[in-house]
């Protein structure tokens, strides 16, 4: 296991590359979902100004 983690002396390079890749993937997922639900919530308030105090519960997004 520790041999695997050492990556033949390239641990710092290999793991930082994979770590940054994971971060980019996760941030992309978060941002894409936020752009969708964010638009839903915004339109929900815009179309009916009287319900702007109430947060919609977005159960299913299809």
């Amino acid at each position: 296991m520790s041999e695997f983690l050492q990556m033949g002396g390239y641990a710092a390079y290999v793991w930082s590359a994979y770590g940054i890749t994971l971060i980019v993937l996760v941030v992309n997922i978060w941002a894409a979902f936020r752009s969708h639900t964010g638009a839903l919530v915004r339109i929900h308030h815009e179309n009916r100004p009287e319900r702007s105090g109430r947060q919609p519960t977005v159960r299913q997004i299809t």
Binding site: A32, F33, S35, H36, T37, A39, I43, N47
Partner: peptide, 20 residues
């Protein structure tokens, strides 16, 4: 993620349509 972003983008453009 293209699908998710496209959904958001469609809502941004079509916000006041009846189907929305």
């Amino acid at each position: 993620l293209l699908c998710k972003r496209l959904q958001g983008e469609i809502l941004n453009r079509e916000g006041h349509a009846r189907w929305v």
